[in-house]
């Protein structure tokens, strides 16, 4: 069973609607076609593959307002980056959620604090 991580901690996946899946090597020219999707899920095949962060930021800049999920090998230390880049939530598998339990993710639920880029934007 996969676990959905948000600022309030771990939860089960409550989503029953359609999912638009995006691979990390997706051509950014195709992002505009996803703007009406209710949920876009960006794959992280490995935690060192940082393309998903830029894809999320670009989707948001294009005006995407739906639910945005990072899924796969995202580690707790990346939770703040994911939220700042525009993701609402992270989907991880049971094994990762056991190895990095809820408290390690909640430790970065304060992702709004200490954000240089946001400060420079005046956000």
């Amino acid at each position: 069973m996969s676990v959905i991580v948000t600022d309030t901690g771990f939860a089960e996946d409550d989503w029953a609607g359609p999912v638009a899946d995006l691979t990390s090597d997706a051509d950014p020219a195709g992002l505009a076609a996803l703007l009406e999707a209710p949920l876009v899920r960006v794959a992280f095949p490995g935690f060192a593959d940082g393309r998903g962060f830029t894809l999320a930021a670009r989707l948001r800049r294009l005006g995407y307002r739906g639910r945005l999920r990072a899924a796969g090998h995202v580690i707790a230390d990346q939770y703040a980056m994911a939220r700042r880049a525009g993701f609402d939530e992270v989907e991880i598998d049971a094994a990762l959620s056991a190895r990095q339990p809820e408290d390690q993710w909640l430790a970065r639920a304060d992702w709004r604090a200490g954000d240089y880029r946001a400060r420079l934007r005046g956000a």
Binding site: F47, A48, F53, M81, G114, Y116, R117, R119, L120
Partner: peptide, 16 residues
Amino acid sequence: ELIRQWSTDHPEFQFL
């Protein structure tokens, strides 16, 4: 210094 601040912990650019 401005670039230092902007690039520090930049959410998109920690796993380049």
